[in-house]
Amino acid sequence: MRKITYAEAIREALIEEMRRDPSVILYGEDVANFGGIFRVSAGLKDMFGDERVFDSPISENALVGGGVGAALTGLRPVVELQFADFLFTAGDEVVLKAGMWRYGHGGAYAIPLVVRCPSGATGVGPEHGQCPEAFFMHAPGLKIVSPSNPADAKGLLKSAIRDNNPVLYFEHKLLYATRGEVPEGEDVLVPLGKAAIAREGDDLTLVAISAMVPKALKAAKRLAAEGHSVEVIDPRSLVPFDRETIIESVKKTGKIVVAEESYKTLGVGAEIGAMLMEQALEYLDRPLRRVAIPDVPIPTAAVLEAFVLPNEEKIYQACRELLA
């Protein structure tokens, strides 16, 4: 199968969906002339014209709120925020408008909106490097996806665009250049709410999100060389969340580690832990371990950033501790 990058996969999904459906539009800061600050949407303005692909002012509230208004009135807007961190800038429009407009108006409208959120720490400090999915998992009415490879990046974005609900689509900046096999075909979708088993195993369940997945796979390979069989689960969607795949795995392994590039307190790992307490406590042989950022902002200097970020070694060590 052909191999393309994660960024190319996103671009291909945008092109296919825009060709398929004239109600799909794309806008955000620098997305048209420059093709996006990470060049993901390069060339789309020439393909689809300035009405459907355009540069917006630096106005995150108007971008996301405008997306809600456009979605209420029959478009399927894809809004790019330059950095996932800017979700907080647009907080009202994300949480209260995108997430609650439909509910507050008794289901009168659907809101088919996608907000693309480039996430992940890349030496750019506290306000440009977060993976803030967990903040928005707490907010009702928002779907959340975080693909870890090119095939999922494409298939999940296509599903998100076709979904009739607001979807926050987290694209990790350090994954843009990663290559992988991506099936061709306009209707090859990855469903929202279905986890992937990235590697099968029997001794320990390792849940990893977004850019933590390749790191988790490397850690699992090291552990395999030491005789430990680790199952790596990539949830792909955080809302809706595929609880069954994790619970089924834990029933088999009795041990779980969650690796995420977010703050430890009330992160995705905390929710998984609570879910297991409620639904699978009897299957756990060992306490859950979370590999996450200690509760500090992400520092800028490389040595400081590396100290707080989860990595392959930290994941490996957490697994070793449970497997001992």
Partner: peptide, 23 residues
Amino acid sequence: LGESGTLGGCFPIAAGAGLSIRV
């Protein structure tokens, strides 16, 4: 279209509806 519970939430929504009309 409804009403924003937070004052001023209406403005971006209005802009978005305008965008739809244009597109």
